[in-house]
Each structure stands twice: as C-alpha cells, then as structure tokens.
C-alpha cells in the first residue's frame, strides 16, 4: 500500500511542481497550457478535500460526544453545525445566493461584528505585553538587576514612533516626525526585508525537498 500512500502522490506532486516551475521560467506554450489546467484543478481538489475534512470533523466531534457526554462536547458538536447550516443554507436557498439580503445581513450583522471583537481584545493584550517587554531593568535568577539593551532599543523606537503621532509633539518638536519616519522606513523596512528573504529561502528549501520526494511530514501519516 506504500506505493499508493507515498510513491504515487510524490510522483504526481513532483510532476505538477516541475511543470508549474517551467511555466514560470520559460516561454514554451505547452507548460503554460498545462499550468492553466493544473491551476483550474486547484479549486476542485481543495473543495473536495475541504468537504471530506468537514465530514471527518463532524464524525470525530460526534464520536467525542459519544465517548464523553458532557456539555462542552455537545456545544463543540452542535454550535458549528447550526451555524454552518444557517450560513450555507441561506447562501443556497435564498435567491441571490451570497448577494441576497438575508446572507448579507448574516455576514455584516453577525460574522463581521463578532470578528471585529478580536481586534478590540487584542489591543489590551498588546498593551500588557508591551509594558513587560519594554521593562529596561529586570532581575536575573540570582536576584541581581540587569539592564536589557534590546528592551531599551524597543522602547526608544516605540516611544519616538508613538510621540510623532501626537500633534503636540509635531508642533513643539518637529524633528521627531522625520526621525520617527526614518525609524519606520529604514531600520524597520531593512529588518523586515531580511526576515522575509530568510523565511522565503526556508520555504524554497521545503518546496524543493517536497518536489525531490524527501518531505515525509504528511506522506508518512496513517
């Protein structure tokens, strides 16, 4: 069975990956055409696997409830199903699909508002962690006080960038605007680009390893 679980998927993956790469780098029409075909399969393959995953998830949650009939497991089973049926059903049944007033109401009055709450809560957690992170002096395990250079740099950058947003400082300390912009556009962008390049190289390595058939993280799972 290993051939169905490992070799065939790896061969298909490698073939498709090589074709997509050749379509990106070359001007040959054959690769462009194949790339178009493969790209059009993406929604079909992904939708099929999402559907299978959904069935599996419902079954797994149901079995959880059967094993341990408590309120939490019942909520985990019922609530997603109820909202799935409401949203999916409304999109399918009401004329106009996802453009219908009913679906738009569900989206804008429930989903979007509930989603917006996360940002409100997030700012409190950010503030509490910022206070901890920007603490300049901390105690080491022996109880001795230690100056933290990274915290100082972070606090200095954060303070300058915050103060430059306040009109009072813009009027009485105009230099802070340019300095804040410099922090944002030079060290911040430089560091960010370095991080993006390094992460992209890491992703390329994983990609090549997958095409090479050496990536076993998913194919070895039963």
């Amino acid at each position: 069975m290993a051939i169905f679980k490992r070799e065939i998927p790896t061969a298909v993956l490698s073939f498709v990956g090589v074709v997509v790469l050749l379509a990106f780098f070359t001007t040959l029409d054959i690769f462009e055409t194949l790339n178009g075909v493969f790209t059009s399969w993406i929604p079909v393959v992904s939708a099929a696997s999402v559907g299978l995953g959904l069935i599996y998830m419902i079954y797994a949650q149901y079995m959880n409830y059967q094993r341990n009939k408590n309120l939490n497991n019942l909520i985990y089973l019922v609530v997603p199903l109820v909202f799935f049926v409401i949203f999916f059903g409304t999109a399918l049944v009401v004329p106009g699909n996802i453009s219908s007033d009913a679906y738009q109401w569900l989206y804008f009055h429930i989903y979007q508002n509930v989603g917006g709450v996360i940002y409100a809560v997030m700012f409190f957690t950010l503030a509490s962690s910022a206070i901890r992170t920007m603490r300049l002096v901390t105690k080491d395990p022996s109880g001795a006080l230690q100056f933290r250079l990274e915290a100082a740099a972070l606090m200095f950058g954060g303070l300058i960038y915050t103060l430059r947003q306040i009109p009072l400082f813009q009027v009485y300390l105009p230099g802070i605007v340019g300095f804040g912009e410099w922090i944002m556009l030079v060290p911040n962008v430089g560091g960010g680009r370095a991080a993006v390049i390094a992460a992209a190289l890491g992703a390329i390595v994983v990609g090549i390893r997958t095409l090479w058939g050496k990536e076993r993280t998913t194919t070895e799972v039963d």
């Binding site: 995953g53 070895e220 799972v221």
Partner: peptide
Amino acid sequence: TESIPIIEGTARE
C-alpha cells in the same frame, strides 16, 4: 478541516 486528519495522525503516531 482538510488538515485535521493529518494533524490527528501526526499526534497519534
């Protein structure tokens, strides 16, 4: 949901 079987399988194995 499509990644759930892989995640569960990884933990189980």
